[in-house]
Deep mutational scan, measured.
Amino acid sequence: AMEMGLACVVCRQMMVASGNQLVECQECHNLYHRDCHKPQVTDKEANDPRLVWYCARCT
């Protein structure tokens, strides 16, 4: 999947907007926009540098 680069696995886009940054699952290393992931990634989750985030598939 490395050839995908830094794109969201849901929408396949790399564009990021304020409040909709890409977050990386620490287990599978897929990237998700906060708005694309279900459930939506919260501000607290996205902005906490100590948080280890896992996508819905890996939790």
Score class of each variant (00 low, 15 high):
Ala1Asn: 15
Ala1Gly: 07
Ala1Glu: 06
Ala1Ile: 10
Met2Leu: 12
Glu3Pro: 02
Glu3Gln: 07
Met4Tyr: 05
Gly5Arg: 09
Gly5Trp: 03
Gly5Phe: 03
Leu6Ile: 12
Leu6Arg: 08
Leu6Thr: 14
Leu6Ser: 15
Ala7Lys: 15
Val9Leu: 04
Val10Asn: 05
Cys11Gly: 00
Gln13Val: 07
Gln13His: 10
Gln13Lys: 12
Met14Arg: 15
Met14Gln: 15
Met15Asn: 14
Met15Gln: 15
Met15Leu: 11
Met15Asp: 15
Met15Gly: 15
Met15Phe: 09
Val16Met: 12
Val16Gln: 11
Val16Thr: 14
Val16Asn: 13
Val16Ser: 12
Ala17Ile: 07
Ala17Leu: 05
Ala17Asp: 04
Ala17Glu: 10
Ala17Arg: 10
Ser18His: 13
Ser18Gln: 12
Gly19His: 08
Asn20Ile: 08
Asn20Asp: 12
Gln21Thr: 15
Gln21Lys: 06
Leu22Gln: 03
Leu22Thr: 08
Val23Pro: 02
Val23Gly: 02
Val23Trp: 10
Glu24His: 04
Glu24Ala: 06
Glu24Asn: 03
Cys25Ile: 00
Cys25Ser: 01
Gln26Phe: 09
Gln26Ile: 06
Gln26Asp: 06
Glu27Tyr: 04
His29Asp: 03
His29Met: 07
Asn30Glu: 07
Leu31Lys: 15
Tyr32Thr: 03
His33Ile: 00
His33Cys: 12
His33Gly: 01
Arg34Gln: 15
Arg34Asn: 13
Arg34Phe: 13
Arg34Met: 12
Asp35Tyr: 08
Cys36Leu: 01
Cys36Lys: 01
His37Phe: 04
His37Ile: 11
His37Pro: 01
His37Arg: 03
His37Thr: 07
Lys38His: 06
Lys38Trp: 03
Pro39Gly: 03
Pro39Asn: 06
Val41Tyr: 02
Thr42Asn: 10
Thr42Asp: 07
Thr42Pro: 14
Thr42Glu: 09
Thr42Met: 06
Thr42Val: 06
Asp43Glu: 10
Asp43Arg: 04
Lys44Gly: 13
Lys44Ser: 08
Asn47Val: 09
Asp48Tyr: 05
Asp48Ala: 07
Asp48Ile: 05
Pro49Trp: 02
Arg50Asp: 11
Leu51Pro: 13
Leu51Lys: 15
Leu51Asn: 05
Leu51His: 14
Val52Ile: 07
Val52Pro: 13
Val52Gly: 13
Trp53Val: 02
Trp53Lys: 06
Tyr54Thr: 15
Tyr54Glu: 09
Cys55His: 00
Cys55Asn: 02
Ala56Cys: 11
Ala56Ser: 09
Ala56His: 10
Arg57Tyr: 04
Arg57Thr: 14
Arg57Ser: 11
Arg57Trp: 05
Thr59Arg: 12
Thr59Ile: 07
